[in-house]
Computed example of a mutant assay.
Amino acid sequence: MARLFAKLGYNLAICARRGERLEQLKVDLLQSYPNIRVEYKILDVSDYESIFKVFDEFAADFGHLDRIVVNAGVGDSRRIGKGRFKINRRTAEINFISALAQCEAAMKIFREQNAGHLVVISSMSAMRGLPGHMTTYGAAKAGIAHLAEGIRADMLLTKLPIKVTTIFPGYIRTEIN
């Protein structure tokens, strides 16, 4: 996603847990697209307070944020009732509570700017309850999809010029799977 936005000429504020990967991405992007600005910050989305800090720092650094993509998630859930509550809880927390914190931080910025575009990455797994190891994952992704729908409805009711988009990707090969 960052590569596509860079190709389109957008300046980028990117964050993730692994600084070395962010640094390499920044180097690669600036080598290919020297006329854009790329800044990064290390962020573990399970540290909720850091989400607000990092988003606010990016807003201050750039002066205005046009779009924020909420895309952090994990797929490490297990069958319900098999003694793996801690793993399922972590999946639910990262995929829903961390996403909620990111939406809160993003919408705070957009409300202050009176403009912006919140993009929430859900999953096709959110469309119906799934069996086995996908149960908690799908439920959390459904939760974040409904959260985004509620935010979108709120923007329509309040007539604020803030867009909200929910994306439901299908299976994507990543190092998680």
Rank of each mutant, 00 (worst) to 15 (best):
D66M: 04
R37V: 09
F58D: 06
V45P: 00
S46M: 09
F55Y: 14
R37E: 10
F52E: 10
E49P: 05
L43H: 04
S50N: 12
E39Y: 01
G63E: 02
F62Q: 08
E57Q: 11
S50P: 03
I36R: 04
A60Q: 11
D56E: 10
K41Y: 05
N35V: 01
Y48N: 07
L65F: 15
N35E: 07
F58Q: 08
D47F: 13
D44N: 13
E49K: 13
S50H: 10
N35S: 08
L65W: 15
H64Y: 14
Y40A: 06
D44S: 08
H64P: 01
R37Q: 13
H64R: 11
V54M: 07
Y40N: 07
K41E: 14
A60G: 08
I36D: 02
P34E: 01
D61H: 08
F58I: 08
V45F: 10
D56L: 02
S50F: 03
F52G: 13
F55D: 03
G63T: 05
S50D: 10
I51G: 00
A59V: 04
A59R: 09
F52V: 09
Y40C: 11
D61W: 00
I36K: 09
E49Q: 15
P34T: 06
E49S: 11
F52T: 07
D44R: 01
I42R: 10
Y48C: 03
F52Y: 07
V38F: 15
E57R: 13
D66P: 00
E39W: 02
F58T: 10
D47Q: 09
N35P: 07
V38T: 05
Y40L: 09
F62R: 09
D61T: 11
P34Y: 15
K53S: 14
K41M: 12
E57V: 13
A60K: 14
R37D: 10
V38E: 05
G63V: 04
K41N: 12
D47A: 15
A60Y: 06
F55N: 05
S50Y: 08
R37T: 15
D61G: 14
D66K: 01
V45T: 05
K41A: 14
S46P: 00
V38Y: 12
A59N: 13
E57T: 09
I42Q: 06
P34R: 11
H64K: 07
I42V: 12
E39G: 04
S46T: 14
E57K: 13
I51A: 04
P34G: 01
D61Q: 09
F62A: 05
I36F: 14
K53A: 14
I36A: 08
